[in-house]
Amino acid sequence: MRRRDLVARVGLYTVLGAGLLVVVGPFLWAVLSSMKPEAEIRRIPATWWPEVFTLDNYRELLSRLDFPQAFANSAIVAVLTTLGNLAFCSLLGYALAKLRFPGRRALFLVVLGTLMVPSMVTFVPQFVLVSNLGLVNSYGGLILPFLATPFGVFLMRQYLLSIPDELIEAARVDGAGELRIFARIVLPLCGPALATLTILTFLASWNNFLWPLVVATTEDKYTLPVALALYSVGQNRIEYGLVLAGAVAVLLPVVIVFVLLQRHFLRGIATTGLK
């Protein structure tokens, strides 16, 4: 038995380690290459460790862009979008999963259907709408269209379906109001799903490029990906050094959010006292 366990363990680590190498290897190259001069990045065959170590790519980004402003814009938009989604999507997700109300099925189908509409097709109508509402070049225009997303509702509903009804029924029998049940019983059970939704929404908002590019008409409203694209991709040439340095700069906050939240995946029903 012990021997089998050991074999299983060695096998598992080998597979996971190999997987990590395949996934992180290219990524590591990108990080290292962001600290090489342009000519070395483009050289074929490529180098792993920088022959010439330089922070010029980062320095150039910082000096040519209003980095703090773009970072602040991205943070404001991503945080508010995420908070909105957490609130609105968990409310509706709960209602769809656990409450019987007229039109429930239709509402779910409409929301789910919208999730399936290719986003390219709604782009121009959405922009014209935002423009008619006078929201061009405002935080409202950057945030409002993403505040309530079908994706979040679908995620929350599917997760909540797997929470036993008995818990909620018991609280109802005790006379608790629906809002109280939601806040005191349902939400604490949703840790993993809310953590997932936070990461995915934050990431989507943080990386969003086309919408903020079109809605922001002055540079002081540019988000980070938009500002970073300004000088890395030209009419006839791409600056790989700036692309990679920009990618690393954009990535860091998302990785931090992920590391902070990932331990919530560990907490779930197992630790919420459900027997």
Partner: peptide, 24 residues
């Protein structure tokens, strides 16, 4: 439960109808 359901659904639905469903 019907009232509670719609109360829970309304905030999302309003935003959704305006910014998603209408463009669709």
């Amino acid at each position: 439960q019907g009232l509670a359901g719609w109360a829970f659904a309304t905030p999302f639905t309003v935003l959704f109808l305006l910014f998603m469903a209408l463009p669709v």
